[in-house]
Design a protein around this nucleic acid. Structure first.
Lengths: 236, 236
DNA sequence: ATGTGATTTGTACTATCGTACAAAAGATCA
DNA sequence: TGATCTTTTGTACGATAGTACAAATCACAT
């Protein structure tokens, strides 16, 4: 039924290459790129440091392979969900469906690779914060198309909002999404145990609800900032 | 007029200690903690590596001192702005004032120290993403009080929203705030030059507008998730 | 069983890391 | 001016970083 794998595909230990990738993903996502050594990764994967060099040449190469593994499937899933969302008739429902199509693959498995998309999304968040060059390049050329597609779709369902505002708000969405995956325990702590920051389903619902409302906020007409409101002194 | 400084206060070069702090702040905020070496910092400050050891003992000590420098003034300013905001009568206006009291000190100078609060806020974002232990400890014991005060204030102006939802939404606010400071160029890129992500005033207005709307979103009753909407297939 | 190519191991090299410390230099006051 | 304290410099040490590479080991076809 299933083709017998050749020696080219199966390592001695069952897929050491995958184990290294998974370990690196986990360690990078929780500690950052520079805080993790190749030896740390090899140890976590139960492998020899030399194996990492053999499979991925360099530490950068390892990171690059992680991105290659996830970007395709995740964007594909997002595209599918976005296409379905765009077919929703009711504008309010459509907006929510679009936001959901953006958020869900980031939390749940964007691919069927072990661990799912949450880990990879967290990894992206951390690499973004560290200003990692390898990540920056591959992200800009891989995710910008997707981001534009979402921005366009949202703009269609909110035609009265300037595109600039949509860009800002989708930027906020991504920031909120990232931060929810980076420090979920902060939610648990601040809610005094009433909420569980690590609960993906709960986070998704909260994020979708809040974001939809943010997108629907009145436009910010920067041409006329005259509408000054006596809020709080802006002086020190 | 001004008291003549003694030798205890003025270094040979004008405040080398401050120069090191400023350089470290900038480098940590843009590259992360582990990617920056003590030598990098010394070089950027025009100092000798040994000077860093002399003034701060360790690299962790340097980071700790950066936090000590900013946390106090920033929280003080936030408290003042929050107190003023709570006195606003109109509930809608009060909510906006509260959010503004949270956001403004993070973008503009939380203290009168060189560079202002934006750099320090970005630093906090990066340390948070890297899971830095030194930062985690000092943040939890320094900012949680402030966070609770804001959450309480927001809850007061939105009594019909469960506290859990407020926590989540303020968490999203912080994430959006962090991300805006970490990758402002992404906003410029995605808006095709129509918006400037580095413009603090613009970012603040957008963030306040979007966040107020998010807080005002209807409550998310997790007791009854029955209100299922036919949005998009959740299957792969 | 044996040869062959893929993989894993063990180790070593060089660079750079954080930090320590003695000496030099500067500042201050008697 | 000389004594004393603070700051800066220069250098060195041990630890660890990324990576390379030869030898050992394994899976499989013949």
């Amino acid at each position: 039924m299933i083709r017998k794998p050749t020696s080219r595909e199966t390592a001695r230990k069952p897929n050491m290459r995958e184990a290294i990738l998974a370990a690196a993903e986990e360690l990078f996502a929780t500690n950052g790129f520079n805080a993790v050594s190749v030896r740390d990764i090899a140890h976590a994967a139960g492998a020899n440091p030399g194996s990492v060099t053999y499979h991925f040449r360099t530490k950068d190469g390892l990171l690059l392979e992680i991105y290659r593994r996830h970007c395709g499937p995740m964007n594909l899933r997002r595209s599918e969900l976005l296409a379905a969302a765009r077919r929703v008739r009711d504008l309010q429902d459509r907006l929510e469906a679009i936001v959901r199509a953006y958020v869900v693959p980031a939390f749940t498995s964007g691919s069927d690779l072990a661990g799912g998309g949450a880990r990879f999304t967290r990894l992206r968040a951390v690499m973004s914060a560290e200003g990692n060059e390898v990540a920056r390049k591959i992200i800009a050329q891989t995710f910008d198309d997707t981001s534009h597609a979402f921005i366009d779709a949202i703009h269609e369902s909110l035609p009265h909002i300037p595109r600039t505002d949509i860009v800002w708000r989708s930027h906020f969405l991504l920031g909120a999404l990232y931060y929810s995956l980076v420090t979920p325990e902060r939610v648990s702590r601040l809610s005094r145990g009433e909420a569980d920051g690590s609960d993906a389903a709960g986070a998704i619902e909260q994020l979708v609800q809040a974001t939809v409302a943010a997108f629907q906020a009145p436009a910010l007409d920067q041409a006329a900032p005259a509408r000054r409101r006596p809020v709080v002194s802006s002086k020190t």
